[in-house]
Design a protein around this nucleic acid. Structure first.
Length: 418
DNA sequence: TCTGGGGTCCTAGGACCC
DNA sequence: TCTGGGGTCCTAGGACCC
């Protein structure tokens, strides 16, 4: 941590997914719009326009609930690629204001603006020109919070919404936080809020009445930091950490919820194959090798289990991921029980281990080359062009085998791997 | 109301080692 | 032979965020 005070910006795009969709279809402007899927689908709201929010619609709400609350809303499927594209534009604008930019998610970022006064003027002026430039270059609105730490900047950007700028002047942090609901503190969700409420703690300022030992006992090291915050202290932790380059990923996963629950083992293993391919591909793209492979299984009644296994050597191969995840599935699925969701998760990334066994190393090398070739085909002809799961019962939908590629050990249609 | 998909971080217990 | 303690890894689950 530097000696002097920092100036941190938190830039948060307003109704990002909705706003991007409006650029592609201007007729959506000013209407109640729900992004995330169709009104009858199994799914939740990714984003809602301010118009739809007036009816109580908010993100993470089931689509069917949103449809009941706001029947006249227009339901739009999400377009990930569009958001990624616009996220890049946003990032680009931000880098013209500070070299220290950290995207916190697809639609928000932290900037360390410390010492940029000579270039951009005092914080409020810098924020206003950033706001202006964002609008002209991306056609999107954002809100900007300014403070001496990530936490203060983040909370103030939320208070600045929509389309506003808010600066918490250094020294005023405790005064700013005290009257806020504890729920306004990032990291305090439904459960923590209820726990705090049961202790009579409703506002951030109420925390000041309790001593550190008590809060740590009830809320762990997090409670301690929160208490410090309530008093305006720099308590340490992520919210006081430096703003730097984007961190390396710690896990890569894919999951799928069925339109209808299933108890068909063949179908589920086919799904796991596809998910393994998706994960393997991302690992190869990122040059990553995972040691821990995890299966996620959610039954009809929503009870969810995860089962993990750590490999002796890290991998990025679809087949090795699939083999693990399939045996975890076979060991743990309650036969006959209907399943709602399956997921494949990889973590514990490590450097590629040297192969002791020469023959084994050769086999892996050939696999790697074949999979890279398949990745390139998918780039050119689309995701559905190549799949090891082809011919197995469709986990997602029947697949069309347009551009077959010769993969070592490729399965014959309709047969399992043994 | 009937609950997505992609992540991060934390806790807690048991294994294992010294 | 009635009972240590610290450190690290692994696994499972959960809170939380966008």
């Amino acid at each position: 941590m530097s000696a002097g005070l920092r100036t941190i910006f938190h830039v948060d795009m307003d109704a990002f997914f909705v706003s991007v969709e409006e650029l592609f279809d201007p007729s959506l402007k000013g209407k109640a719009v729900v992004v995330g899927g169709q009104r009858n689908e199994r799914g939740v709201v990714s984003a809602a326009s301010y118009e739809a929010r007036k009816f109580g619609v908010h993100s993470a709400m089931p689509l069917r609930t949103a449809a009941k609350l706001c029947p006249h809303a227009i339901f739009v499927d999400g377009h990930r690629e569009r958001y990624v594209e616009y996220s890049r534009k946003v990032h680009h604008v931000l880098t013209t204001f500070s070299p220290l930019v950290e995207m916190a998610s697809i639609d928000e970022a932290y900037l360390d603006m410390t010492g940029t006064d000579r270039l951009h003027g005092p914080p409020l002026r810098a924020a206003h020109s950033l706001h202006q430039k964002m609008k002209t270059e991306t056609q999107l609105n954002c809100s900007i919070g300014i403070g001496i730490s990530r936490l203060i900047a983040k909370v103030s950007s939320a208070k600045a919404k929509p389309n506003g700028v808010l600066w918490v002047v250094p020294g005023q942090e405790a005064k700013f936080l005290a009257p806020l609901d504890v729920r306004d503190i990032p990291g305090v969700g439904k459960v923590t809020e209820q726990n705090l409420l049961s202790l009579g703690i409703r506002k951030v300022g109420d925390l000041a009445r309790f001593d550190d030992a008590f809060l740590e006992e009830h809320f762990g090291k997090w409670g301690l930091a929160l208490a410090g915050k309530a008093r305006g202290e720099d308590a340490g932790g992520w919210f006081d950490s430096e703003v730097g380059a984007d961190a390396d990923p710690k896990s890569i996963s894919h999951e799928h919820t069925y339109t209808e629950d299933t108890a068909d083992a063949e179908q589920m293993e086919s799904t796991l194959m596809r998910l393994s391919e998706m994960v393997g591909r991302r690992l190869r793209e990122g040059g990553l090798h995972a040691r821990t492979i995890q299966l996620k299984l959610r039954y009809k009644d929503f009870t969810t289990i995860t089962r993990a296994h750590s490999l002796p050597a890290p991998t990025q191969l679809d087949t090795e991921i699939f083999e693990q995840v399939r045996s975890l599935f076979r060991e743990n699925w309650r036969k006959g029980a209907e399943v709602r969701l399956l997921g494949v998760h990889t973590s514990s990334f490590a450097d590629e281990a040297e192969q002791g066994d020469l023959l084994e190393g050769n086999r892996r090398e050939r696999w790697k080359q074949a999979l890279s070739a398949a990745d390139r085909l998918r780039d050119r002809f689309g995701e559905s062009s190549v799949s090891l799961a082809t011919g197995m019962k469709g986990g997602f939908r029947e697949r069309i085998h347009e551009n077959p590629v010769d993969l070592p050990g490729k399965q014959k249609p309709g047969r399992s791997n043994e």
